[in-house]
């Protein structure tokens, strides 16, 4: 138990420092030796964070983009993994390896071609455009992961549902999804955070303020070689608070009841 406490402390120390720094003055932040707590806590950094950049707009953009990305990824990914585990199509392994291999190329090499394509299609500076790229980049992972999960679920449940006349969609929604709830939740969070944190693509594809994402916005506080860390920390907190409550809220619903209803043979 002690180990757990110590570990959680280490895990949370950087966050704690970030919180503390967001209330510090620049003088506190500059000081040597470093300060653990603000000498005169103030909300000035939060005010600067909100006024220097339209950070809330960026948070909104990030939310819209990542939610679309998660939706695309889950839909396409579930369909593909269902096909790979429950139907007798050929080239399953080839497909999996191909999908994976193609996703292994460093992102930098994707940027130029995708920029040109999007420029032609008018998808630059749109929520959907960036969401689609973000989704596609995490799609291989989603397919692989859901395939692994589906493989682990015995087909016996579906057989009985099939006998009752249920279609694939019903089977997926009423039989498989409840069993996979935790996995679907995890992969959603994974894709969500993956898309949320995508920096280079967001910067290049969504350059305009109206569609800018929050990770790009965070880099704009810096001027003249120095980062006003207090302001960036405050902005960072503003961006992770909604995430925090979202996860706190949903993990109860989705992970909560699952222990009782695990897979039984």
């Amino acid at each position: 138990m002690l180990f757990v406490v110590v570990f959680l402390f280490v895990m949370l120390a950087p966050l704690a420092y970030m919180v503390s720094a967001s209330f510090m003055s620049q003088a506190d932040l500059n000081s040597i030796p470093p300060k653990l707590f603000p000498s005169a806590p103030s909300l000035a950094n939060f005010v600067s964070a909100l006024t220097q950049q339209p950070i809330l707009k960026y948070v909104y953009n990030s939310f819209v983009i990542t939610l679309i990305a998660v939706a695309i990824c889950l839909t396409a990914g579930s369909m593909a993994s269902y096909a790979l585990t429950r139907t007798r199509i050929r080239f399953k392994t080839t497909f999996l390896v191909f999908v994976l291999a193609i996703s292994l190329l460093p992102t930098i090499t994707l940027i130029n071609p995708i920029f040109k394509l999007y420029s032609r299609l008018g998808l630059l500076n749109t929520h959907l455009g960036l969401a689609v790229v973000a989704a596609v980049l995490d799609l291989p992972m989603t397919i692989w992961f859901l395939t692994a999960v589906l493989k682990g679920i015995p087909t016996s449940f579906e057989e009985s549902a099939k006998l009752d006349g249920a279609g694939i969609f019903q089977i997926f929604v009423y039989v498989l999804a409840p069993i996979m709830k935790a996995s679907l939740f995890s992969i959603s969070i994974l894709v969500f955070i993956g898309a949320w944190n995508r920096y280079l693509l967001s910067q290049v594809l969504n350059q305009y303020e109206a569609r800018r994402t929050v990770v790009v916005g965070l880099t704009l506080y810096q001027t003249n070689h120095t980062v006003p860390f207090g302001v960036v920390a405050a902005a960072g907190l503003i961006t992770i608070l909604p995430l925090f409550f979202l996860v706190l809220r949903f993990q109860k619903n989705i992970l909560g009841g699952i222990m009782e209803g695990g897979v039984k043979e």
């Binding site: 920096y199 920390a233 925090f244 996860v247």
Partner: peptide, 12 residues
Amino acid sequence: AVLIPWAIPTVV
């Protein structure tokens, strides 16, 4: 709480 480090943007 365990998820937090991951949610903190890499820039920060």
